[in-house]
Design a binder for these strands. Sequence first.
DNA 1: AAGCCGGGGAC
DNA 2: GTCCCAGGCTT
Length: 316
Amino acid sequence: MPSNSPDPQPRLAETREVVLTSAAQIAQMVSQVSDWFAIHARPLPWRSDDVTPWGVLVSEVLSHQTQIERVVPKWQEFMRRWPAPAALAHDTDASILEFWDRLGYPRRALQLRRCAIAICDEHDGEVPDSVEVLESLPGIGPYTAGAVASFAYHRAVPAVDTNVRRVLARAICGVAAAWAPNVRRDRDIVLATLPTDGVAAAAWNASAMELGAVVCRSRTPDCAACPIAALCVWNQAGRPDNAPTPAKRQAAFKGSMREARGHVMALLRAEGVADRNAVDRALAYQSRFSGEDVVAGLIRDGLISMDADGRVVLGQ
DNA sequence: AAGCCGGGGAC
DNA sequence: GTCCCAGGCTT
């Protein structure tokens, strides 16, 4: 297991305008949250010692914008069907799209298979261990690259998800909500907390994430159960409602193109193939989009394809 | 930086 | 109905 990554040092100088705590206080928080995690961590299956880097990578991709409780059974089924990148690379797009079922964001499924193919073709079937190489893989961005490098290979690198942003926003910045995702900001603030030892860094990444998911929740924080309530800047300030208001509200799902695409994908998972009339019936609920437009978008994304008779099928 | 991309669950 | 969820890609 290579460990020639540079040891990231805390960069308090770069972040002092937002980090309101001292290095000593941060060290105490890291220690206390890690101790809490050792006792209270949920027994997620991909946290077992015998999980492969591929298993870690798969768990992270399945978890994108998806609650962990929904991921657990899918991860177990996934690992039975495709225990290594080669197994997925040798299967088909249609196969993984059918497996994906209603997890959401089915483009993740295609990207994950392309990722497996790239791992087989360019990395001898081994999941890469460096953030830079991981980020070059399809569907692997800054968060997932950091998570795989940290959890699977114990590299001392950040893995900043929405939970970590919120925990640090509250605990050391004194702000009620996570800042908007930003690669530079994520890295700078987390580097103020990240242990230089790779094993300790992995523990901290997982601990901060878990605290955010289970205790330091977005709308209903359980500060009474928090191991760092006494150190948390936001809690000590009386939990002010001091987060900047988001520029734009989330777009409605009902009536959206996403909903329309979802209906067509559900039809194809159930039927395997659909003609034009079947597509129109699937959109008869009230879609403001034509079947033609919906199908064109799905084809553009590689999620479906059309045969010579104008019927559509899953995958390519 | 902002928009797009699913679907389910909590409130 | 609104917001949130172990994000990433495109423009």
